[in-house]
Design a protein around this nucleic acid. Structure first.
Lengths: 138, 138
DNA sequence: CCTCAAATAGAAACTATTTCTGTTTATTAT
DNA sequence: ATAATAAACAGAAATAGTTTCTATTTGAGG
């Protein structure tokens, strides 16, 4: 947790109670959350809190490297704790479709390929969906 | 073109003028399009045409294997002609961020991996964005 | 403690998508 | 050909997720 708060400061972001709470949700839950889910949790702790702040905060936390965006096939945004917070290495994510847990995948076929099929590769995105060991047992 | 019309029939879908037109847009343009872009093109040919039909048709065309969804990082849906229309083999897509052209990638690191990191792999998605040879030259 | 930029709430706007209802149209079987 | 019928359709309206705006509050540095 302390690590994340330092990351916040490094990114020039203030340490507000709401931001701390949001980070805690991700640290404790070890899962990915949508802005609305974050908002619901936040409302339990704070009498007054607005959804727009949640959106802004999630984006800020992505920018300073604490969270990562997870692309799903619905219209909602998804965010997860970036487990690569200790170093900025290349990785992707595997998400449990049952419980929402997010893990990282270090092996990447695209890696630092500069060219594929004549294309100059600019960016790439890999998302794996599965069922984690815990949920499989259940 | 004929190939696609057969695919439509195979999928149990009617051969309507609007569907033919939509397929043509993709075949001729060789690029990915959003529902709204398709709608704009459609309106030039048909006096009356509704956006909801466009959405429905694009989804139908995905289901019968003519189009494929392309995940971008905006809120819009993107569709592209599935170049694997001749066979239903496993592949992903590379998209030119300049002109929107879509090519397929046959090599896939995830492939038919059953397990990754203890997760039972259910599905995966790879999207590569780049600049194609034509656009690089320009 | 004072200042001030950053963060915030709440309302309202916006945008992409979906749902609904009644009408039209392409296919299939006569 | 033509009638029957299930699918496709238009257009209006609703919805959902996100963003913008404005005025107020708050945290961090002096």
């Amino acid at each position: 947790m302390q690590l994340y708060l330092e990351k916040l400061k490094e990114g020039g972001l203030k340490l507000t109670p709401r931001r701390q709470a949001i980070i805690e949700f991700f640290v404790d839950g070890k899962s990915h959350l949508t802005p609305e889910e974050v908002w619901k949790k936040l409302k339990k702790r704070f009498d007054r809190c607005g959804l727009p702040s949640v959106y802004r905060n999630l984006e800020s936390l992505v920018k300073c490297g604490i969270l990562t965006k997870i692309q799903q096939f619905d219209r909602k945004k998804h965010y997860g704790l970036c487990s690569a917070v200790h170093g900025d290495y290349h990785h992707h994510h595997i998400t449990c479709i049952e419980c929402g847990k997010v893990d990282e995948i270090k092996d990447c076929a695209i890696g630092d390929a500069k060219k594929i099929k004549g294309y100059k590769v600019v960016s790439h995105f890999i998302q794996v969906n599965g069922i984690c060991a815990d949920c499989s047992r259940g």
